Simulated assay, not measured.
Amino acid sequence: MNLCGSSISTPPHYILLGADQRYYNSDTPGLFGGYKRGKIYGRLDCPSALRAIERGGYVKHRVFFANEETALAAGYRPCAICMPDKYKEWKSSYLKR
């Protein structure tokens, strides 16, 4: 039962960042996490991100994305640690600009 005494449970809501850099509610969790200050996104199990979270300074700047396309469209780059191949692709195309 929930707080209202009803046995109907509400699905969890997740706050994701969209391509337009606006937050929106989602019924499904994001597949990728990001660091807003560095404009980096990566896997949720990224060792570098997990170390930063453990130290505590990273959490308040954490964002989540539904997919890679959204992260890229929002101006984020792939993490060089957990996504080295995607990072190399991104860096190669970035340097050609």
Rank of each mutant, 00 (worst) to 15 (best):
Y58K: 00
G56E: 09
E68A: 15
Y94D: 14
R43T: 06
R62T: 12
L50D: 00
G18R: 01
A66S: 06
A80N: 14
Y87M: 03
R62E: 11
G57L: 07
R97F: 04
G57M: 03
S93F: 12
E89K: 15
T28P: 02
G34D: 13
I15D: 03
S48C: 11
P29N: 08
T10I: 04
A73P: 04
L44F: 02
Y35N: 15
L44W: 00
R77F: 10
Q21P: 02
G75E: 08
I15V: 14
R97P: 04
M83F: 00
A80R: 15
T28I: 11
T10F: 10
K91S: 12
R22K: 15
C46N: 02
Y24G: 02
V63W: 01
M1A: 04
R22W: 09
L17Y: 05
Y87N: 14
Y41E: 05
S26Q: 09
R22I: 08
F32D: 07
Y94P: 00
G38Q: 15
D85V: 14
A19L: 00
Y58A: 03
G57W: 14
K36Q: 12
H61F: 07
R55D: 08
N25K: 02
R22Y: 10
I40Q: 05
G34T: 09
F65A: 10
F64W: 14
G18F: 03
D45C: 06
L3P: 00
H61N: 14
S6K: 10
G56T: 09
R55H: 04
C46L: 08
I53D: 07
N2R: 08
L44I: 13
A52L: 06
P47T: 07
S7D: 10
S6Y: 02
R37Y: 07
P12W: 02
A80Y: 07
G75M: 04
F32Y: 15
S9I: 08
S93V: 12
Y23M: 11
L50E: 07
F32V: 03
A52S: 13
D45H: 12
V59H: 09
G33Y: 06
M83Y: 00
T28F: 14
E68I: 12
T10A: 08
K86N: 13
A71Q: 12
A49V: 05
Y94R: 12
S7T: 08
K60S: 11
R55P: 00
G57Y: 15
N2L: 03
W90S: 11
P12H: 10
S9C: 02
P47R: 09
T10Q: 12
W90Q: 03
K88R: 15
A49N: 06
H13G: 05
K60Y: 06
A19D: 10
G57V: 05
N2T: 05
S7N: 09
S6F: 08
Y24W: 08
R51P: 00
P12D: 03
C4W: 07
I8C: 04
D85G: 10
L16E: 06
P12F: 10
M83L: 15
P47E: 10
A80C: 09
A66M: 06
Y41V: 00
N2F: 04
A74S: 11
N25F: 05
T28V: 13
R51A: 11
E89C: 10
S26R: 06
V63Q: 01
N67V: 08
D45P: 02
S48L: 12
P47K: 11
Y41P: 05
Y58V: 01
Y58W: 09
G33D: 07
